[in-house]
Nucleic acid binder design. Sequence first.
DNA 1: CAGAATCCGTTACGATACTG
DNA 2: CAGTATCGTAACGGATTCTG
Lengths: 114, 114
Amino acid sequence: MSLRMRKSPASPLPPPCALTECMSLIAGAWTPNVIWHLGGGPRRFGELRADLPRISARVLSARLKALEARGVVHRRAAPTSPPSVEYSLTEVGRELVPALHAIVEVGARLKRLR
Amino acid sequence: MSLRMRKSPASPLPPPCALTECMSLIAGAWTPNVIWHLGGGPRRFGELRADLPRISARVLSARLKALEARGVVHRRAAPTSPPSVEYSLTEVGRELVPALHAIVEVGARLKRLR
DNA sequence: CAGAATCCGTTACGATACTG
DNA sequence: CAGTATCGTAACGGATTCTG
């Protein structure tokens, strides 16, 4: 069982509909976790790496960039040296947290059933 | 942009936490769409193929089987010839629909913002 | 510290062909 | 009709190395 989500499919494309496009917001094995941890408040790049022990810098960077481009995450870089960058959920981005929570609820309920 | 979700990661594993495990419920490029269409009521295999024009039988079959194993979908096969199989969301599975809806809401809102 | 660049294994999915 | 088997491909993600 592998957990992935294509924003656009392999070559042709899976479902060119609104649902798929919206689901791409949380696409990627780490994306939900990134959003989840940002739900607790602003977080620095390095802090997120610590929150998500096994994530690679490459992937964290890519996810944050994608989320920023979509308007889910806000990036604030302090012009210091060494650099310090703070990420936070936008107002709309914060709405994803309860949505993720709802899915977790279902998962928990399914687990209880067996 | 590609839309994928690993239920369990490539080899090591991304986030071995509850969130990830729950998110794996809707993992796969097509899974949310399958659940979405089943939300309208029971559906036959062939009907789902028609609902999801580009999905391959291989993937639809795999997704339905995974959802069934997790307790999200119920499968009822009529012992006729040719066979007729009806899929439907379980009671718990139905709870995923509003969760997906919530994500779509956020997606719509983000779209309006730009 | 916050990344970008490169290399490479794993996998999700599509297409096609076949079956009970 | 409802799948299964096989094959080929794009892309997701890990690890490592390098930089301003």
